[in-house]
Design a protein around this nucleic acid. Structure first.
Lengths: 386, 386
DNA sequence: CCCCACACCGTAAACGTTTACAGGCGCCTG
DNA sequence: CAGGCGCCTGTAAACGTTTACGGTGTGGGG
């Protein structure tokens, strides 16, 4: 851990100037003999370029930040899984920011772009406040926002479409013959809650179904809360034959309660979740869920940012990622999985997380066609005892 | 995005030297009047310190890297969830490296420490080769390895204990009266596979149960593979009354096949998984699983690294994290969850991932006592249309 | 009244690169 | 053979900080 060699060290040893060393290391035209000497010296000394000094001079860090509310959240993770390889392929490192859902922290991240420790930022804001917009306008590096921003905000933007997502689900339930379709929503003062609630009402209307307040229950985006809401709904409206849940956790709660109440899923009641997280494929019966394309959004955001980093100026772009209905047993009544929409997903993933320094890995999932499997890995080294 | 102000800009505007500016910004003793002028100028200009220049001078980046095989893997994520807050609290940024299970990439990461873009590294190596050890010995920044390293390697090290983990599970099954306990393992040439297989045999022996080869099946660490292996086992040994699965995915496969075969879980067959991933709590019946303490290992690693970054020299430490058996319905036969061991976990997590820029968050999970819930978030801004 | 101590501040060097510029040298051309 | 052109290389400045060092001004004590 001693002080490493610098180009000065190399220059001295090779008997040339630091400019020549730099030129050789950067592949600029140099006499063959000089190249040889410099390379030899660099090799012998085990030289590694100092990224910090390099960044100072070049004004490029080759780092990009990704900021979201919570590292542990599956929707963000799905984004991260796609963002990472895109950036890596382009030679960027990824700096992770977890804002713990504190708005001030998000503003901080935006502000800290001025420190120039990253070349750009992908952010999933909790909500978009005035303060966000102001800081954004003054940001000293390119930013891509995942989530909706007010019309006219000059920033690259990637959105999902949960309205269409809800509609896909309702149409699916309708096609299965369901007519008493309940909705278990999260709080209406959240943006997702409001949007999904409105979309539900709209979709019913378009199908000519009446909007029945008794069929709607508000809980929170938790499993237990969802279950509670379902229990209430069952008590009030025993003839409900389908449940549209505002996220997968609520839907798992619904499965719990329906099972306890002796209702068969999907024979008596169909259940649809939302977000298509890993949990959907793991549950029993496996859960039909609306994917809002977290993975695709992440990928799109990364590509937008790279384009801006490389391309320079252009008008801000808006990318909207279409939702997809992933049909599983909770509506279709089969143990297997059937995909509707343009893509297949099966989220179950796990690993063998062990102390022996050998862990599972995923094979490529580049194109969203991911069967979600983990490789157990392997090892040729057994001495790491337990 | 114009060029931001530097201390030179401020010095000019405040009519002082850059040294004074620096002193003020760093809180070194300065005349009150000077402080005022500098602060005023800095505020007006919206000055933000350039982290790169600062790092070059101070030789500290306040960044730490975390390298593992795959961002999407739940075991690594559990680590990440704990590492992140620890580093953040200490003022460090987190740089993420996903090596895609390519050993050469891991060596690269180790080597790139010479670039000095981070102050330290936490690494979960796929396996530990000679090349790892060599590069490790020459590493230019402190490293913490999660996973076993050969005796005598001079590096901070955090390990799990899957042998004891398997034993916990087997003892539990034995206590429930199970005597025909099968094992569904991953490939034996993987470190986890070998270790868990051996532990199974040993545990049976200690309980006075015979080791019956017919009760052991090797598949891979996948759900479908696990299911296939279970089907074989059922065909050969119909009287099996418990299954020890080498990871949660295999266990999910086991549940699938047992259900299809008309065996009740846990009445006819008890099932235990391993790793206690989020999927364990989501499945039906919920899955008893052995936690190898990924979260704790992550936290311990972060703390070791911080200690080394702050403390300086000391002997390398070894931390071993004890496993924990999380009893759920697949062995206990209750819908609810009962925790055995010293801690409670319930991994279900989800969110409302929506395009409206409003997302769920987790409340504190600092001490491992985590009820795994997500908050739906909220928003006061509705104009983000869909 | 002189000198010294002290508080404050400015100058300049350093961190490790990249790169503009200019100098030296060889060779070709006229 | 002189001039000029090109290739290669070295010198030095710059990126934006931090910090050692020395200078200046003030006030107090001998």
């Amino acid at each position: 851990m001693a002080d490493g060699p610098t180009i000065n060290t190399i220059a001295a040893r090779a008997g040339v100037s630091i400019a020549s060393v730099s030129r050789v290391l950067n592949g600029l035209p140099t006499r063959q003999e000089t190249v040889r000497k410099v390379m030899a010296a660099a090799d012998e000394l085990g030289y590694v370029r100092n990224a910090v000094a390099r960044s100072l001079k070049s004004r490029r860090t080759h780092q990009v930040a990704f900021a979201m509310a919570d590292v542990g959240n599956p929707a963000y993770l799905a984004m991260l899984r796609e963002i990472q390889p895109v950036l890596k392929a382009a030679g960027y490192r990824l700096v992770l920011h977890s804002t713990d859902a504190v708005v001030a922290d998000e503003i901080d991240v935006l502000h800290s772009l001025g420190e120039r420790y990253v070349d750009g930022l992908i952010m999933v804001p909790l909500r978009v406040t005035e303060a966000h917009l102001e800081t954004l306008a003054a940001a000293r590096a390119p930013v891509v926002i995942i989530g909706s921003v007010p019309e006219g905000t000059r920033v690259d933007n990637v959105r999902a479409d949960s309205r269409t997502g809800v509609r896909l689900a309702i149409d699916h339930l309708y096609a299965l013959g369901r007519r008493r379709i309940g909705m278990i929503n999260g709080p209406l003062d959240t943006v997702p809650g409001a949007a999904r609630g409105a979309a539900y009402r709209e979709a019913l209307g378009d199908l000519g179904l009446p909007y029945d307040e008794d069929l709607v229950r508000i809980g929170d985006f938790y499993r237990a809360e969802g279950g509670r809401a379902v229990a209430e709904l069952l008590a009030g409206v025993p003839d409900v034959d389908a449940l549209m849940c505002a996220n997968d956790l609520i839907a798992l709660g619904a499965l719990d309660v329906l099972r306890a109440a002796g209702r068969r899923v999907p024979e008596d009641v169909s259940v649809v979740g939302m977000d298509d997280t890993d949990l959907a494929a793991a549950s029993w019966p496996s859960l039909t869920s609306v994917s809002l394309g977290s993975a695709e959004r992440g990928k799109a955001a990364a590509e937008l940012l790279l384009d801006r980093l490389q391309g320079g100026d252009r008008e801000p772009r808006l990318v909207t990622v279409p939702p997809r209905l992933v049909v599983r047993a909770s509506t279709a009544g089969v143990a297997g999985e059937r995909i509707s929409g343009d893509d297949a997903r099966d989220g179950a993933r796990d690993n063998d997380g062990d102390n022996d320094g050998d862990n599972g890995r995923d094979n490529g999932r580049d194109n969203g066609r991911d069967n979600g499997r983990d490789n157990g890995g392997g090892s040729d080294r057994k001495e790491g005892g337990e």
